[in-house]
């Protein structure tokens, strides 16, 4: 039971972070594609900007890993 709860907690940590990153990436992506349509040379910067919110998911992943390995023993 306790392991199951830990699993749910880890899932929530990654899941909510992924939702947040997805929302941010969606907005940045649409603006970035608009910018690239006018200035194709901005591709590198647009990729960079789109990739920035992904850190949220990685932090969520780190929290999930801590839940599983530290709390889960």
């Amino acid at each position: 039971m306790e392991t199951g709860l830990l699993g749910i907690g880890a899932g929530i940590a990654v899941g909510l972070a992924a939702i947040g990153a997805g929302v941010a990436q969606g907005r940045i992506g649409s603006a970035g594609i608009g910018a690239m349509a006018e200035k194709p040379e901005m591709m590198g910067r647009v990729i960079l900007l789109i990739a920035i919110p992904e850190t949220l998911v990685i932090l969520g992943f780190a929290v999930a890993a801590m839940i599983m390995f530290i709390l889960g023993g």
Binding site: G44, I47, L48, A51, I52
Partner: peptide
């Protein structure tokens, strides 16, 4: 590829 680039760029 994208993630390796991102780690470098950011």
């Amino acid at each position: 590829t994208i993630q390796a680039l991102r780690l470098h760029y950011v």
